[in-house]
Structures are given as C-alpha cells and as structure tokens.
C-alpha cells in the first residue's frame, strides 16, 4: 500500500465538501485535471515499477529442472495456488511443458528428441490482443494500461468463456473449494473461492512494491522482464539481438511472453 497522505487527502475532500455545500462542486474548485493528477500521484507507491506494456523473455537454454521447480514453486506458494494432483481439476499459473506441447505447430518428425522434449515454462501470455478479455461477459478479466491481463476474482461468474477463448490453456477453474489444497498459506495474497477462473497476474502486487515478478527473481537470469515499449529496456535489447519466438503468434493475440531458443 502506498503512503497516502491522509491529511492532505482529507483537506481537499473537506474543501470540496464545503464548496459543494455552497453550491460549488469540487470540480469548480480544483478542476478535473488536478483531481486526476492527484489521483495519479497517489495511486502508485513511489517505489512501484511501471511500464507502458510489461513483457517477458524466457531463455530456454538457461532453463533447468531446478530453475523450473523454483519458479513454479515460488509462484504457486506466494499466490496460494492450490496443489491439486488430479489433472482434471489442476490449477496452474506457471508450469512446465515439453517444447512439442508448448509449440505444437512446430512439430517436426526430424526434430531432435532433445528439442522435442526440451522443458518450457508456460504461463499467461498477457496478450496485447487478449481473446479472454474480449469474450468475458462481466469485465472480470481485463487488460490494464500497463498490458497486464488481470482477473477480478470477485466479479467472475465462472462461465469459463475465457477458458474456451484462451488458445494457450493458461486459465484454470476452481472446480471446488481451493482452500483445502493450500498447505502453507500466504496471508498477504487473497484466496480464491470455488467457481472462479484464475491465472498468472504478472505479479502485479510485487511490481507495486518495486519487486520483479517472483518467477523472474527465482529464475537466476533465465527469465527477464521489462517494458517492451521502451527501446532501452533490457528485454528490448535482448529481442533486438536474439531470435525469439512466441506461442501461436499466427492467431493475432500478440503474446507478451517471448522465448529464446
């Protein structure tokens, strides 16, 4: 939570109310632009990381079983993701797939078994043009200004249209109450309830505190992140000097997660 100057806020609110009573609305006193600037100033903590569009680059050469385990483990632990072993009801935010499954359109009979079975970390692609957002009937899933595709688990009605819409299988549904499947709960992150869809949220709560996404931190350099609209950002430099691929790019969803081979 940012350090909102409560006193200053109340002062302006007080003046506004006073003026409002006298027939002047708060807009006449401070002006709409000033209010927006005020809100903008206090919406984010000073240490919060901001971007025009967040993106991620995953270097597959650097991934090993330990990193994969650490990334998935820390993500699922801090976000209270239930550990359900039954594949029917599994909930995953970030997980391991084989290359041939993550990139099925690249399947090739003569591809070496090492590449075919190379481990790949997959997660929500935070698409620039997300089909899940397009189909959601309640705006429970939406794209933030910084490109993060978010979930409002309190608004979700559980129609699972987004799961049908997502071509990446990135979304999980709580087929039953997830609480019983969470061992070490993290009180700082909200629990979900049964009947809602959930997925990776690019660690928005960590970015707000000036921290990188948990998987990035645990990956020992295998996962990089940054503002893809900023030509000087680390990931832009990587993308300009490396060959990177995205999952199912032909679908026009414009994923924000890139893979280096």
């Amino acid at each position: 939570m940012s350090n909102i100057n409560r006193r200053e806020f109340l002062k302006i609110l007080g003046i506004g109310t006073f003026m409002g009573l006298g027939g002047w609305s708060i807009f006449e006193v401070v002006g709409k632009g000033e209010i927006e600037a005020f809100v903008e100033k206090y919406k984010k903590a000073p240490e919060a990381l901001q971007a025009k569009r967040w993106a991620m680059v995953i270097d597959l050469k650097k991934l090993d079983q330990k990193i994969i385990h650490d990334c998935t483990e820390v993500c699922h632990r801090i976000h209270n993701v239930p550990k359900i072993l039954n594949p029917k009801e599994e909930i995953k935010w970030i997980w391991e797939e084989k290359f041939k499954n993550a990139f099925p359109e690249m399947k090739d009979d003569y591809m070496s078994p090492e590449i075919k079975n190379m481990p790949v970390l997959v997660l929500c692609n935070h698409c620039e043009n997300p089909p899940c957002v397009r189909v959601c009937p309640t705006k429970a899933t939406f794209k933030r200004k910084d490109g993060i595709v978010m979930m409002d688990m309190h608004r979700c009605i559980g129609c699972r249209f987004c799961m049908a819409g997502c071509p990446y299988g990135a979304r999980s549904f709580n087929w039953r109450d997830p609480r019983q499947y969470v061992k070490n709960e993290n009180p700082e992150f909200p629990f979900r309830m049964k009947g809602v869809v959930e997925k990776c949220t690019f660690c928005y709560e960590r970015l707000d505190r000036g921290l990188p996404p948990a998987c990035v931190e645990a990956s020992k350099g295998a996962i990089m992140y940054g503002d893809i609209t900023d030509p000087n950002s680390e990931i832009r430099k990587i993308l300009s000097s490396n060959f990177a691929i995205r999952r199912k790019a032909k679908l026009g969803t414009k994923p924000s997660v890139y893979y280096l081979l």
């Binding site: 009937p137 309640t138 429970a140 608004r155 979700c156 009947g195």
Partner: peptide, 20 residues
Amino acid sequence: LGQPMRVLNVLLHPTPNSVM
C-alpha cells in the same frame, strides 16, 4: 456457472464486446 449468485454481474457490468 461457477458462481451462480453473481449471474446479475452480466447486467451490472454490461460488456458489449462479449458475444455472451
């Protein structure tokens, strides 16, 4: 629906980009 009690959200938050 997973959360049938929230079905009215479809009316409370009308979303014209959804076919639903």
